[in-house]
Amino acid sequence: MVIRAFAPGSVTGLFAPPPAEGGASRGASFAIRDGVVVELEPADTISVTVEGEPAPFEPVEGLCSDLGVTASVDVRPEVPLGHGFGASGAATLATAIAAADAFDLPRSRAELVDAAHRAEMAAGTGQGDVFIQERGGLLWTTDAGIRRTVPSSPIEYATAGGIDTATMLDDEAFMTAARRAGIRGLDALDSEPTLRQLAERSREYVAETGIATSFVDRQIERVEAAGGAAGMALFGETVFAVDVDGILPERTHVSPVGARLLSGT
């Protein structure tokens, strides 16, 4: 029997790596209504396809191994893979939820999320996307912990390609700049930030860390010329914007809910 599950994509506008002396990373991210559907079916071996075509997908394969299940998993993304939408995390989290149902696993929701996070970390494909995708909304870290809100403003976005997450996380110069800029940006957020404020802080972060490509710079300039605010999705050659209409080609909203099983399984 095929089990279907969905997890929303996510966009990270601010990211501060863990302090050199140890600790947790911090960030500000939001889930979007566009995401990833997986179709999972018990099988003799672990195999992964993307829209029916065989493809390597390390975090999904690693998750299945961690859960002790063998399944055929077809990943059907609604957002581009590797462009800063957390698609690998969404696929991995959706797979965990589908596998738990298909194999009647004695795992809590929190345990499934942790398993998906471990698989993402082991593969070097994400830092904490699954925690955003599990809850939905806009989440950000403060000294007092994680806060959440659900903005209603529409979001436009444009993407030109991917930026390898593992490469960025291995870049010591970037990580040092990201830690400084990320903490400054997070500390400047209001007690309940708007998407515009996040975009503005993300814009400053991009400038300070120097990670913007010419495509990102051009799209941000177009948005600002139209009176909107724009930031960069980490990590992808992708720009998200608010308070504009028709400036960027794609449009979505913050997802108020997180990953879930789909009907018709």
Score class of each variant (00 low, 15 high):
Ser88Ala: 09
Ser214Arg: 14
Gly236Met: 12
Phe6Pro: 07
Thr194Ile: 07
Val37Tyr: 02
Val2Glu: 03
Thr92Glu: 15
Glu78Leu: 04
Pro154Trp: 02
Pro193Tyr: 14
Glu250Gly: 11
Gly52His: 05
Leu261Gln: 09
Val113Gln: 13
Val2Lys: 00
Glu224Met: 06
Thr92Asn: 13
Gly264Val: 02
Ala160Asn: 09
Arg76Trp: 12
Ile163Pro: 11
His253Trp: 00
Thr176Gln: 15
Glu51Leu: 13
Ser202Asn: 09
Ser47Arg: 13
Gly161Cys: 05
Ala20Ser: 14
Val254Cys: 15
Leu169Cys: 11
Arg135Met: 01
Pro8Asn: 04
Arg180Lys: 11
Ser10Glu: 13
Gly62Met: 10
Met232Ser: 04
Ala259Ser: 09
Asp217Ser: 12
Thr165His: 15
Ser25Leu: 11
Met121Gln: 10
Gly161Asp: 13
Gln133Asp: 11
Val257Cys: 12
Ile183Ala: 03
Val60Gly: 02
Arg4Ala: 05
Gly68Ala: 05
Ala96Arg: 02
Glu200Asp: 05
Arg179Ala: 10
Glu221His: 07
Ala259Lys: 05
Pro42Ile: 04
Asp171Gly: 10
Gly137Asn: 10
Ala20His: 14
Pro8Lys: 01
Ala91Asp: 04
Arg76Tyr: 13
Asp171Ala: 15
Ala230Phe: 01
Glu204His: 09
Ser65Asn: 09
Ile220Glu: 03
Gly13Ala: 06
Gln219Tyr: 14
Ile247Met: 13
Pro59Asn: 08
Arg26His: 13
Val73Ala: 01
Arg180Val: 15
Ala100Ile: 09
Val242Lys: 00
Gly23Cys: 13
Ala28Asn: 11
Glu237His: 08
Thr142Ala: 11
Arg203Phe: 13
Glu208Gln: 12
Pro80Tyr: 03
Ala115Asp: 15
Gly128Tyr: 02
Ala199Ser: 08
His253Tyr: 02
Ala91Ile: 02
Ile32Glu: 00
Thr176Arg: 15
Phe174Lys: 05
Pro17Leu: 07
Ile155Cys: 00
Asp34Val: 00
Glu39Gly: 01
His83Met: 08
Met232Asn: 06
Ile3Lys: 10
Leu81Thr: 14
